[in-house]
């Protein structure tokens, strides 16, 4: 078991390393060099030369990668080209905002998905189950921006109850904050919860059909106890897995949702940086989000190890 965990951690690190190389080289492999790309066509030769110098374009790519990596490891993420500030400073505010948003989403996510999933599973085939299934299907297959736009159209544009944009910097009271964050939170929670509810429902239905649940009934165990002690613990492993995958999905979801609501988080920062061709910021944000993504996958892996007595006692 410790061996397995160590192996998973190592492969997660390896993945991160591979991603950093890919991200770095993607930016490298462009036609023309980085300086031309960054400054566009109408630029003076002097400006170009100065930037080339600054970006160390004269050095071989590998050593530039090494240099960049050494910087990242020592906490120096470079300087943002569009704002001229250190990337670490540029990142700090949006990272905090994104953390706040995702934190609220997660707090809502767990009880909602567990509750709805179990409720639908034990009422399988009844109206409650069908309603939950319909909701989850819609939540699952609609892209976030469609949900976001639908919500905004109704609650912000038509009814005017909530602000259409989530300008968190302008929220001064707690009430403002809630109103500001409500739509993006609901959008993200809907998509995530839909997946988890479906997963918990399916796993639990499978487990409820299993021999050991049958056996628990046949030894006279009260139904509630069968559900809580025999069925649920064995259905949670896969559900936990989907949770971590969901959190990983959030890294992509926030890009879209933050853009829609103009929420000043990491996702919007990335989109802006890409539009501005701000390479150091692109590299840092995408690596940070990838790191979160890989970390979540790792937690899912280890979680399913810990929750599965079979795997736990192996080796």
């Amino acid at each position: 078991m410790p061996k397995l965990i160590a192996f998973r951690c190592l492969s997660a690190l390896a993945t991160l390393a591979v991603v950093s190389v890919i991200v770095f080289w993607m930016v490298e492999w462009l036609p023309g060099d980085a300086a031309e790309r960054l400054l566009g066509r109408d630029v003076t030769a002097a400006g170009l030369a100065a930037l080339r110098d600054k970006l160390q374009l004269g050095i071989a790519p590998w050593s530039r990668y090494g240099h960049w990596l050494a910087g990242v490891l020592s906490g120096d993420l470079g300087t943002s080209i569009s704002s001229g500030r250190p990337v670490a400073d540029v990142l700090a505010g949006p990272a905090g905002n994104t953390l706040l948003l995702t934190g609220i989403v997660l707090v809502l996510y767990f009880p909602l998905s567990l509750g709805l999933g179990v409720w639908a599973a034990v009422r399988q085939g009844r109206p409650v189950d069908l309603a939950v299934q319909l909701f989850t299907l819609i939540g699952m297959c609609l892209p976030e921006y469609v949900v976001a736009i639908a919500l905004t159209s109704v609650f912000a544009v038509k009814l005017g109850w909530l602000p259409p944009l989530a300008l968190i910097d302008q929220a001064h009271t707690f009430g403002d904050l809630i109103r500001t964050l409500l739509l993006p939170t609901v959008t993200l929670t809907a998509a995530m919860t839909a997946y988890a509810v479906r997963m918990i429902r399916e796993c639990l239905i499978d487990v409820l059909r299993s021999g050991y649940v049958d056996m628990a009934h046949l030894k006279g165990t009260p139904p509630r106890r069968v559900l809580l002690r025999h069925a649920l613990p064995n259905a949670l492993g896969p559900a936990l897995n989907v949770t971590a995958l969901n959190v990983a999905w959030l890294t992509g979801g926030i890009v879209v949702v933050e853009t829609i609501f103009n929420f000043p988080g990491l996702g919007r920062l990335l989109v802006d940086a890409i539009s501005n061709k701000d390479v150091p910021v692109i590299l840092s944000v995408s690596l940070l989000l990838t790191g979160v993504y890989i970390f979540c996958n790792l937690v899912a892996d280890i979680g399913s190890l810990v929750f599965n007595p079979k795997l736990r006692s192996a080796r």
Partner: peptide, 10 residues
């Protein structure tokens, strides 16, 4: 089938 009749988590 004894293998599937005992709750695996207990």
């Amino acid at each position: 089938n004894p293998a599937t009749s005992l709750t695996p988590s207990m």
